[in-house]
């Protein structure tokens, strides 16, 4: 069992990590670097001279190759970690008599995206560097609580039986948002809102793609191993 989990997790995690790194370098890193220009004050939106506009466009990607390589490395680690958790879920589902097909894997991936990216983003939007926010520990606690509550809720919807499962699942999905994510009572944004919005949308879009691929690849490897054993 452990061998099946490790093989699915590592294969899918590394494959998706590499793909996600490429997509992030293409779509996310230019926005990150542009955000840093506003974070450091190298560029100023609504400058003191009263002009309401600021120059748009990212700096070159070629300036810091080591930085982008370590980002790619951490992408692989992150998706391998998600792969371990997902494959552990496959193993539990298989033990309970469910067959994990590649098509089902795609839905597992979508659920991972909903639980780990979309639900927390409803309270804490993806942040450009330089965004001023409450204490990181408070945000991490809310983020983690939301991810756990949403994961349990989706598992209840997928595998639970009876109306009670659905009622508990609905309560678990709503609870973190009723409690509310930690927010400041003032705005501090220094980056143009267009840039922040673009960053948040692309963060969700690229992670949706990565999670779907993770589910699909991990389940494909998993079902091959199950058939072979």
């Amino acid at each position: 069992m452990l061998k099946h989990i490790l093989t699915s997790a590592v294969f899918a995690g590394v494959a998706v990590g590499v793909l996600a790194a490429a997509v992030q370098l293409w779509l996310m890193t230019p926005l990150l670097l542009e955000g840093e220009l506003f974070e450091t004050g190298a560029r100023v939106h609504f400058a003191a001279d009263g002009s309401p506009q600021s120059e748009a466009g990212p700096p070159s990607l070629m300036d810091e190759p080591v930085r982008h390589l370590t980002t790619a490395g951490f992408g692989i680690v992150t998706f391998t970690a998600f792969g371990f958790l997902m494959a552990a879920g496959f193993a539990l589902a298989t033990r309970a008599g469910h067959v994990v097909t590649p098509r089902a894997g795609l839905i597992w991936g979508l659920c991972g995206f909903i639980a780990v990216q979309l639900a927390p983003a409803v309270g804490l939007s993806p942040e450009l560097p330089g965004t001023v926010a409450p204490e990181v520990e408070m945000r991490q606690a809310w983020w983690l609580g939301t991810v756990i509550a949403t994961t349990v809720a989706l598992a209840l919807i997928a595998f639970g039986r009876g109306t009670l499962s659905w009622i508990i699942a609905t309560a678990l999905i709503l609870a973190p948002h009723i409690v509310g994510a930690p927010h400041l009572d003032t705005y501090y944004g220094v980056a143009p809102p267009e840039l922040s919005a673009h960053f948040a949308a692309r963060s969700l879009g690229t992670s949706a793609l990565s999670w779907c691929l993770l589910g699909l690849i991990a389940a494909t490897v998993w079902s091959h191993q199950e058939e072979a054993s």
Partner: peptide
């Protein structure tokens, strides 16, 4: 070292 990845994945 994980900074850019954390921002891209929207981890706090």
């Amino acid at each position: 070292t994980a900074h850019d990845q954390r921002h891209a994945m929207a981890f706090p």
